[in-house]
Computed example of a mutant assay.
Amino acid sequence: MTVVLVALGAAFGAPLRYMVDRAVQARHDSVFPWGTFAVNITGSLILGVLIGGAANGAVPSSLMALLGIGLCGALSTYSTFGYETIRLFEEGARFYALLNATVSIIAGLGAAFVGVSLAEAIWP
Rank of each mutant, 00 (worst) to 15 (best):
V39N: 07
S61P: 12
G68N: 06
F81W: 13
R17L: 09
G82L: 00
D21H: 14
S104H: 05
T36Y: 08
L8Q: 06
M64V: 09
L88P: 14
S79F: 04
S61C: 00
A112I: 04
G73N: 06
C72Q: 02
Y83S: 00
F32L: 04
G68Q: 02
P60F: 01
G53E: 05
L63C: 02
L63P: 04
L88N: 13
R22W: 12
L50Y: 09
T80C: 09
T77W: 04
G108S: 11
F37N: 05
S61K: 08
W123N: 10
G43R: 06
N100V: 07
I122G: 07
S62K: 11
L66G: 08
R87D: 12
M64W: 09
G57R: 07
N56V: 09
V31T: 08
E120M: 03
F89S: 14
L99A: 14
L16F: 06
G48V: 08
I86G: 04
V3N: 11
A119T: 09
A97K: 11
R27I: 04
S104Q: 15
F32I: 10
R22N: 11
S79T: 12
F95W: 07
I105K: 06
I41Y: 01
G115C: 08
G115N: 09
L75C: 06
M19L: 13
L47C: 10
G43L: 09
A93E: 15
L5V: 02
S30E: 01
L45K: 11
L67H: 06
R27P: 05
E84K: 13
F32D: 06
G68K: 00
S61M: 08
L109A: 05
P15F: 08
L16A: 15
I41V: 15
L63Q: 10
A111Y: 01
G53L: 02
V114D: 04
S62W: 15
R17D: 01
A74D: 01
A119C: 11
I69Y: 04
G35W: 06
N56H: 15
A55E: 15
G82N: 02
M19T: 13
F113A: 11
P33G: 15
F12A: 15
I122M: 11
F37C: 03
E91R: 13
T42Y: 02
G48L: 04
G70L: 05
A55Q: 12
T80F: 11
A26H: 03
S117H: 00
A97I: 10
V24P: 03
L63K: 04
P60L: 00
D21A: 14
A74Y: 07
I106A: 15
R17T: 03
V103Y: 05
A112E: 03
V31P: 10
L63Y: 12
